[in-house]
């Protein structure tokens, strides 16, 4: 009667060892200095300026990736319009992800993305465009970008 206990113990260990997925924000989306009236684009390939998230979890598991994207940046009651095009996102699931040559490129950040975690998780990059008005008041403008990931079970 010892055998069932061993099986149960192993089963418990396996179940408990499955880690939940975690997101780490590596970099914000940084537009830097913007001239009034001149749109500025940060591409997803722009190291240090594009937003970068890293997702860790169970290698090989599929996750859903969903952005909640802002339409404006704000400062003291003033707004700057923001645009995210349907090619502004990229993902790399390789152990050594490349921002400038990602495995999955030109992804639509407005849709739910489904990808499997690589051995080192996956990395997500996001670019965007700011459209300041000609009479845009000077100042520091910010907006929040929310990224939600979840296992799909597949």
């Amino acid at each position: 009667m010892r055998k069932p206990f061993i099986i149960v113990a192993a089963f418990l260990f396996m179940a408990a060892s499955c880690p939940a997925q975690t997101i780490t924000l590596n970099n914000d989306l940084v537009f830097g200095s913007v001239f009034p009236g001149i749109p500025k684009t940060i591409t997803k390939y722009s190291v240090g300026s594009a937003a970068e998230f890293h997702v860790a979890g169970i290698s090989g598991s599929e996750i859903s990736i969903q952005f909640a994207l802002p339409t404006y940046m704000h400062s003291s009651g003033f707004n700057i319009e923001m645009i995210f095009f349907n090619t502004d996102c990229s993902i790399d699931t390789l152990a050594s992800p490349s921002q400038t040559s990602p495995l999955f490129d030109n992804l639509n950040p407005w849709t739910t993305l489904l990808y499997r975690l690589g051995s080192a998780g996956l990395t997500i990059w996001l670019g965007g465009t700011a459209i300041p008005k000609v009479v845009q008041p000077p100042g520091s403008y910010t907006a929040t970008i929310v990224l939600t990931v979840a296992y799909t079970g597949a």
């Binding site: 989306l29 537009f31 169970i58 923001m82 700011a130 300041p132 910010t142 970008i145 929310v146 990224l147």
Partner: peptide
Amino acid sequence: CFSLSVNSVQAQDVATGTATATVLTA
């Protein structure tokens, strides 16, 4: 235990990033 574990695996995680810009003098 397994069901609790499974639940924790399927839970979602959320990260909040920031977009920033400094607008220069008009």
